[in-house]
Design a binder for these strands. Structure first.
Lengths: 234, 234
DNA sequence: CACAGCTTAATTTGATCATATTCTGAGGCG
DNA sequence: CGCCTCAGAATATGATCAAATTAAGCTGTG
């Protein structure tokens, strides 16, 4: 590998290195994960071309990827929307999260170290202050960040990738839940989880994770039922 | 494969209805699932443009989707290959299949009817004759077809989609297994599975599925170890 | 004189864009 | 009321640009 020939090229701009479709994908993914796009909302290619100031090809590729992730869905015609969860969907997502995430917690206990532990503590603190301030976007960001950090520690890339895709499916609905009931009464099993990790107790970690997941999915279900009830007053 | 027509053909065949990227995706997906692409093999855009006689954009989109599926992986540079499984990967895939597929079998018992049952029986017969004839591609096709049919019966689209993606990850290695040891000593728990479905016994179905999955993943693991052992004789 | 290591040229492949084509949905007209 | 036309959005193509791998060339040394 030879480097910096720099005959005429001023080494200057570093960030030009990454492909545009990757940036578009990550930005769009973040928008979905952190509640900027509501369930049912239409997503058009040209709209994204403008709002992201990107070309059409990268946007198309990012959208395909997200459709494959289940984060977007294509209607029979060629319209693309953020999917609306049915009760069936939530039930399946719940089952899968219950099956996979406790295992990630279990595996994380085998690999956790001081750095990882303090990282998680920091994230949990940030999460709690977001909750106290009623900062919905902050809550969503930090909550996902906490889980993502934990998954990284578990060193199970395929498992983590699978679970991450599930988050993309329910995240928009999670945003709706917070908009409905605020962030105040959000349960938090993260403290239990951190304690279990510190004690290197895999089963306690798995249990705490299972409870955390269960609570989250319960809220989404409840919100869905409330929405259905309101629907009847049309 | 039909070709060399389209240039001067009139309105020609009907299938103009489907978008090209969809066709490319399905064709490429089939190639991966049924062993036409070996683990580690490079996949180039331009190569596919030629071999599929498609444009560049549809091919790019299909590749993005398959990367998101985990069926292809992008190297640090921008080359794309069929991923090579490590033992770690197989272990994670095994865990996930064990967690999810028995549940699909369980759910299928609630929805199975006469038509579904006879469809599965037909598929199992086709599978067995492929095994007897040592027809590797037929085995891979029918084996996947059997499972896919079962998942459809389970009526759990998100769960099925997730499991389907796992298949894309281990299918290339499954092809290697068959090339190594032939199809003769492939275990077959499908008969048990069909019996359990006919009896509407969810736990028996889940057990048969768990055993089927276990056997398959065991073979991949063994093949991987053998390959590693051979590696040392370089 | 042959060879190793490094630089440079050439080719291959991926990324992006501008543009043409096709399709969908809606509104006007018979 | 249904058919037809039209605008807008998505799909697909091929050209162009950039990056990276590979091949070739050069120079200095043993």
């Amino acid at each position: 590998m030879q480097l910096l020939r720099n005959s005429a090229a001023p080494a200057e701009t570093r960030p030009a290195k990454r492909p545009a479709h990757q940036n578009v994908y990550e930005e769009l993914r973040a928008r979905i994960l952190f509640g900027d796009l509501a369930p049912g909302q239409a997503v058009t290619i040209q709209g994204l071309v403008e709002s992201l100031e990107a070309g059409m090809t990268p946007v198309r590729e990012a959208i395909r990827r997200l459709i494959s992730d289940g984060a977007l869905s294509m209607q029979g015609n060629r319209r693309v929307i953020v999917p609306v969860l049915t009760e069936d969907c939530v039930e399946q997502l719940d089952f899968m999260r219950q099956s996979l995430e406790p295992e990630l917690a279990r595996r994380a206990t085998s690999h956790i170290d001081g750095d990882g532990l303090s990282d998680l503590k920091l994230r949990d603190d940030a999460l709690n202050s977001a909750i106290e301030q009623g900062d919905i976007r902050g809550y969503l960001t930090q909550n996902h960040g906490f889980h993502a950090a934990l998954y990284r520690i578990a060193r199970a890339p395929i498992l983590s990738a699978t679970v991450d895709r599930l988050w993309l499916r329910f995240a928009p609905s999670l945003r709706v839940v917070c908009g409905r009931y605020g962030t105040l009464n959000l349960p938090d099993k993260h403290a239990d989880l951190i304690r279990a990790l510190a004690a290197r107790d895999p089963e306690a970690a798995a249990l705490a994770m299972a409870e955390d997941v269960h609570q989250g999915m319960l809220q989404i279900r409840a919100s869905l039922e409330d929405a259905a009830a309101e629907q009847r007053f049309d």
